[in-house]
Computed example of a mutant assay.
Amino acid sequence: MINRRNMLRGGGAAALGALAITAVTSGTNLATAATHHPELLGDPASTPETESLWPAHLTHTERRHLQVFDELDFAVYSNQQWDRLGESHAQNIRVHWPDGHYTDGIERHIADLKSQFVWAPDTRITEHPIRIAKENLTSVTGVMQGTFSRPMPDGKGGFIQPTGKKFSINMATVGLWNKRGVMEEEFLFWDNQTFYQQIGLA
């Protein structure tokens, strides 16, 4: 059993924790707290190239999981190299999405990922501000960026016309890895309200 308290040890996690405490005690949100306390942690989505240092004292397996995840976001996802998704994802992977639904299987996940690039072909993740690994569990934050530059399918046979607006949102991915070194379950988190506001749909 993983001791989740131990997962929070390390510089990036400590900074995030301090920032969260500051936000709670002052009655503000994380972005506002970061503005008033820049020594803690800025807003990665609005601060380009905020790449973090790697955690200390990782086991070989923990480091490997984080390296595979970096390659997943920076190369496979950002460059749409879908034939390589099996390097990080199990064939029967379950993926949990921010709106609460989940999907099963790598082919379904690839189809969902492809759909993001239909309306924002420049979508990319190029930085991981925080990386945490403990045994078979990883938690990584990223910054997802792109431009709503092409028509977006509305799910009803029609399209939402592009607004031309750029987006840059903070996200987090929690992965559960199996003994073969790939994720068998993945949890994706980001703020959909902020996302829709940035692309002009809210």
Rank of each mutant, 00 (worst) to 15 (best):
S115E: 07
D43Q: 11
N3H: 10
T147E: 06
G175K: 02
L16T: 05
S26C: 06
T147A: 06
V95C: 01
E186P: 00
G86A: 05
T59D: 03
Q161A: 15
D43H: 08
W177C: 08
A20K: 06
R4Q: 08
A56G: 05
K179G: 05
D99A: 13
H101E: 14
R64Y: 01
V182I: 06
T123I: 12
L30P: 11
Q67D: 14
T173S: 04
L41Q: 06
L66M: 09
A23C: 11
T126V: 09
L16V: 03
P129H: 07
M171W: 08
L40N: 01
R108K: 10
M152K: 14
T47C: 00
R108N: 08
I125E: 08
H101D: 12
H36K: 12
S52C: 09
P121M: 06
W190A: 04
E185A: 02
L8V: 07
Q145D: 07
L72Y: 12
N6S: 15
H128K: 10
H96M: 03
V76T: 13
N92L: 02
Q193M: 13
A120I: 10
H37R: 10
N79L: 15
V118K: 07
R124N: 09
T59L: 01
A75L: 12
G164Q: 06
G155N: 09
F189Q: 11
A90N: 03
L66T: 04
E71Q: 12
H96G: 01
L201T: 08
I160S: 04
L85A: 12
Q81D: 10
I125L: 09
A133C: 04
V95N: 00
R4L: 15
T50G: 02
G105E: 07
P44L: 03
L8F: 14
G142E: 08
G181Y: 03
E39R: 11
R4F: 14
A14H: 04
A13Y: 04
F69E: 11
G42P: 04
V118A: 09
T35Y: 00
A13D: 02
E71L: 05
W54S: 02
L40Y: 05
R124D: 05
G10H: 07
L72M: 12
S115G: 04
G11I: 12
L8P: 00
F189D: 00
S52K: 01
E184M: 00
T126I: 11
N29I: 07
T32N: 04
A172K: 03
I125H: 06
S149C: 03
T35F: 02
R180F: 02
Q145S: 14
L8S: 14
Y102F: 13
F74Q: 11
L30A: 08
G105K: 03
V174I: 15
F159K: 09
Q116G: 12
P38E: 11
P55I: 02
A14E: 11
T35L: 13
H57G: 06
G105L: 06
S115M: 13
G86K: 03
Q67L: 12
T138R: 01
S168M: 06
V24W: 06
T194E: 14
A56H: 07
M144H: 05
A33Q: 04
G17A: 14
A133L: 01
Q197W: 05
D104L: 13
I21A: 14
Q67G: 00
T47E: 01
K179T: 14
L201Y: 03
A15K: 15
K166T: 15
V95G: 01
